[in-house]
């Protein structure tokens, strides 16, 4: 069981042309910047487009690829190296941007594509479940965000009101 092996498999899938681009998000993505965050699965965002021959338009080719490589399915998850991996199309312009601006991090010699800290924080602000708010606080407390870049993303994606509310709710009693 190894996330490093999951990453190597994703790189191979990209090299084999099954997908155009991927980036890791969710708790595993956040772990690249924060303390390890317990999670049950790996969220992998993949480029979805309509360019003929370049990008896929459905998840079926991905599932077929993994089934042909001996992986099993569990519901919407593909089991890779003991981890349930969920492949997700970018559902919002923010996630599309996060995917386009992914960064590459070396994991013991294996390149891993992951969302930037600022995009992960903005996605948490946008998703806004209790666990997302907790994660956003973790990003802020850890001091890993480029504040100017984060604010640009917040403004670009119409999250100023959500940020103001979040600040008022969680950051105003810091004094």
């Amino acid at each position: 069981m190894s996330i490093r092996e999951v990453i190597a498999t994703l790189n191979q899938m990209e090299a084999d042309g099954v997908i155009d681009r991927y980036a890791i998000g969710g708790a595993v993505g956040a772990t690249f910047y924060l303390e390890p965050l317990a999670t049950l699965d790996v969220d992998v965002f993949i480029a979805f487009g309509t360019e003929p021959g370049k990008r896929i338009a459905s998840l079926k080719p991905i599932f077929d690829y993994f089934l042909a490589h001996g992986c099993s399915m569990q519901g919407e998850y593909v089991m890779i190296a003991g981890w349930p991996v969920q492949f997700l199309p970018p559902a919002t312009p923010l996630v599309e941007e996060a995917l386009a601006d992914e960064i590459v991090v070396d994991v013991d010699g294996v390149p891993a594509r992951v969302f930037s800290a600022e995009h992960l924080a903005a996605i948490a602000l946008q998703t806004a479940r209790a666990k997302d708010k907790a994660r956003l606080l973790q990003f802020i407390e850890a001091g890993v965000l480029d504040a100017a870049r984060f604010q640009e993303i917040v403004q670009r994606h119409g999250l100023v009101d959500a940020w103001t509310k979040f600040e008022r709710q969680f950051l105003s009693d810091k004094s």
């Binding site: 190894s2 996330i3 690249f32 303390e35 390890p36 981890w83 991090v105 994991v107 973790q138 407390e141």
Partner: peptide, 26 residues
């Protein structure tokens, strides 16, 4: 907070191995 900072500062490969261990435990 100090422990979280210390864990966060560890190499990414080590942090991912910790996720593997947490999942195995779960």
């Amino acid at each position: 907070r100090a422990l979280r900072r210390e864990l966060a500062s560890r190499p990414i490969a080590e942090k991912l191995r910790m996720l593997d261990a947490m999942r195995e435990r779960e």
